[in-house]
C-alpha cells in the first residue's frame, strides 16, 4: 500500500504501463501465443514426443468422454486451440495454497413439506417424443 498525492501517483502509473516488465504476469500465455511457436509442432507428434501437447487422438478421446461428436474437419482447429488454452492454464502450476473456502455458508435446508408438482401438460409440453405420459428416449442397450 502506498499513499501519496495524485500527481506523483499518476506519473508512477503511467510509467507502469509504459514498461512491459510490470508485474502483470497474467499475460504470459498471451505472449507465448503471439510468438507463434504453438503452431511449430507439426501434427503427428504423440504426446510423448512433445511433453504436454494434446494430439488429435487426445481430442477425439476427450470428445468421447464429453459425449460430443467431432467432425473430421473440426479436429485440427480443436486440437490447436486446446493446446493454446491448456498451455495458458499451465500458469496454475505456480499456485500454492489449498482450495478450502473458510467463509462459505453451510446447512441450507428446506422443510419436508410437499409442494404441488407441475401440471402434466407442462411436464410434457416441451418434449417432442412422448408416449402414454412417458418421455421417449433413444435405446440404451
Amino acid at each position: 500500500m502506498q499513499n501519496g498525492k495524485i500527481g506523483a501517483r499518476l506519473k508512477r502509473i503511467i510509467r507502469l504501463h509504459e514498461l512491459p516488465s510490470c508485474p502483470a504476469s497474467w499475460h504470459n500465455g498471451y505472449k507465448r501465443q503471439r510468438g507463434g511457436y504453438l503452431f511449430s509442432y507439426a501434427s503427428g507428434h504423440s504426446r510423448k514426443d512433445v511433453e504436454g501437447m494434446i494430439t488429435e487422438r487426445d481430442v477425439e478421446h476427450i470428445g468421447m468422454l464429453a459425449d460430443i461428436a467431432i467432425l473430421r474437419e473440426e479436429l485440427g482447429e480443436f486440437t490447436a486451440s486446446f493446446n493454446r488454452i491448456l498451455e495458458y492454464f499451465d500458469i496454475l502450476d505456480q499456485v500454492t495454497g489449498d482450495e478450502t473456502d473458510e467463509d462459505v455458508a453451510v446447512n441450507v435446508f428446506r422443510e419436508d413439506e410437499v409442494v404441488p408438482s407441475l401440471p402434466p401438460d407442462d411436464v410434457l409440453s416441451n418434449a417432442k417424443e412422448t408416449e402414454d405420459g412417458f418421455f421417449r428416449a433413444p435405446r440404451v442397450m
Binding site: 464429453a66 460430443i68 461428436a69 467432425l71 482447429e77 491448456l86 428416449a137 433413444p138 435405446r139 440404451v140
Partner: peptide, 29 residues
Amino acid sequence: ADVRKPWHEAFQERRREGFGLEVRRRIMI
C-alpha cells in the same frame, strides 16, 4: 435426439448439432 439410434450415438450427434463451436470447446476442455 434421434430415438432410432442407440443412446450414446444419438446423444453425441444431438450435442454436436445443437451446440456451437465455442460451447463444444468449453465443454470438452
